[in-house]
């Protein structure tokens, strides 16, 4: 019995240490955002009073407001465009499927094995050729359509009852009307899942904007925080405030919609 108790104790100890190690960097980040750099390097782990001071310094070094606005605009446009284009396609591939469309779907799935690093140079050249450098359009265009999302919506359309479609057709609804009027409202949870994943990917995208967003006006949050550490002297309070601001939106989404988030991750194995 005592041995079993000991194992139980070990189990909880292990889990608590794991949870602590998992949370600590984030807690440290948030706490350090409110402290002066001197306090951060001397190991202060309590919230301080330098938050406003840090924000003032951060604003002097970088245009946080602009980066936030740009990041939100790019991510929202990317998410909206992506959901519309991919869900219509996913629905089309399932509801009207025939040999030709099934073949095309299999072909599109092959795009999932193309790593971004392999195509970034041609993409950059394309964007440059069309004069789209530093634009939201350039940021969004290559990320709108992904085989993963099309596949996700195709799978969900499989559970869309065909009786509904038949009934709606008899009532004279147009095909596009059925999609927007019947499918979209029923599949809200799929849209939530897909939306979270797409938004987070767009928000966190670093390499693509690093290449194409070269002007000061088009700066986004990942680039901004990456620039903060480029100098010789690092003000930890300021850097951590920048990082905290950049992860805040995704952490809030995560905490509110943890289950949809997990589902989105898991849908890649279905």
């Amino acid at each position: 019995m005592t041995r079993r108790r000991f194992y139980r104790f070990l189990k909880y100890l292990f889990l608590f240490i794991a949870a602590l190690l998992s949370l600590f960097p984030l807690v440290w980040m948030a706490v350090s955002a409110t402290n002066a750099s001197v306090d951060v390097v001397t190991g202060r782990l309590l919230p301080g009073k330098h938050l406003i001071e840090n924000y003032r310094k951060l604003s002097q070094q970088a245009n946080v407001k602009l980066a936030m606005v740009n990041s939100f605009r790019n991510s929202i446009v990317a998410t909206f465009a992506s959901l519309v284009v991919c869900s219509i396609a996913g629905y089309g591939f399932e509801i009207y499927h025939d040999k030709g469309k099934d073949f095309l779907m299999r072909l599109l799935l092959l795009s999932m094995m193309i790593p971004f690093a392999a195509i970034m140079i041609p993409l950059f050249m394309m964007v440059g050729k069309f004069g789209l450098l530093n634009t939201t359009t350039a940021f969004v265009l290559p990320t709108i359509s992904t085989a993963f999302l099309i596949f996700l919506f195709r799978q969900s359309a499989r559970y869309f009852p065909s009786e509904i479609i038949e009934a709606a057709r008899l009532e004279g609804m147009s095909e596009l009307g059925i999609f927007f009027g019947m499918y979209v409202p029923i599949m809200r949870s799929t849209y939530a899942t897909a939306g979270i994943i797409t938004f987070m990917n767009a928000w966190n995208n670093y390499l693509w904007p690093l290449i194409i967003m070269q002007s000061k006006d088009s700066i986004v949050m990942p680039i901004l925080i990456s620039n903060l550490i480029a100098g010789y002297v690092t003000d930890y309070g300021v850097v951590m405030l920048g990082v905290t601001l950049s992860v805040l939106p995704t952490i809030i989404i995560f905490l509110l919609l943890q289950n949809s988030f997990a589902e989105g991750i898991l849908s890649s194995m279905k």
């Binding site: 960097p25 966190n204 990082v243």
Partner: peptide
């Protein structure tokens, strides 16, 4: 929770 952080931000932390 670490999954909610972007790659750049956790690298900097």
């Amino acid at each position: 929770l670490p999954c909610a952080t972007s790659l750049v931000s956790y690298a900097i932390v």
